[in-house]
Design a protein around this nucleic acid. Structure first.
Lengths: 97, 97
DNA sequence: TTAGGTAGTCAAAAAAATTAGACTTATTGC
DNA sequence: GCAATAAGTCTAATTTTTTTGACTACCTAA
């Protein structure tokens, strides 16, 4: 389905729409994310939804996935520069709450 | 279904989620809104969706509905103070696009 | 070698959001 | 009076999103 983009802020807004993305983003600001921890941290969520959200955030360029090859060999998600650029927007939003 | 609010920005984000709300908001910044004009301006939308979105934006306190009792007696939607407070967030968002 | 953790995928079901189309009520202009 | 415009509502269908549960594959520790 074709989506026409009229409002420039709309794309960004859409990036963070979805039931879990804002929460994931908030946690990513605090520290790198790992899949199973996230699943435990966000009660009410589930594997599939988190997997989808993480994939989308990655595709949108807000998060990046890294394989940590040391010690217990695992995967981390970190905010990209683009992702960090969104932090002030969140802060402003929180200021209005 | 119970929704627990962990992230304070999430509520605001949710306010503007949904297919048409960001666009409606953007138009509301420019001038007061009227139902049928909106329906014509936003191509691809429909009565029901706009009615729902307007009602929600109103409930969230971002828009207010006024009956204009003059001339051709009609209804207008305007940004509330709370709605206006969101304008800078939008601008910041646009700056990042 | 067997159990447990990590990081998922897949298909199907359930729930939520969006749309279509018929219908309503009130006010105008002619 | 008659037709048009404005601002919707209602029900049902369709589409999209989210959830569930089973299943993979790879490591590591005992």
């Amino acid at each position: 389905m074709e989506e026409i983009e009229t409002c420039p802020a709309q794309r960004l807004l859409k990036m963070l729409s979805g039931k879990w993305k804002a929460e994931i983003f908030r946690l990513a600001v605090e520290s790198p994310l790992r899949f199973n921890s996230l699943l435990r941290q966000i009660q009410g969520s589930n594997k599939q939804s988190l997997a989808t959200a993480l994939k989308e955030l990655e595709e949108e360029g807000l998060l990046e996935k890294t394989t940590i090859k040391l010690k217990p060999l695992h995967i981390e998600y970190n905010l990209t520069e683009k992702g960090q650029a969104l932090i002030p927007v969140f802060q402003q939003l929180e200021g209005l709450s």
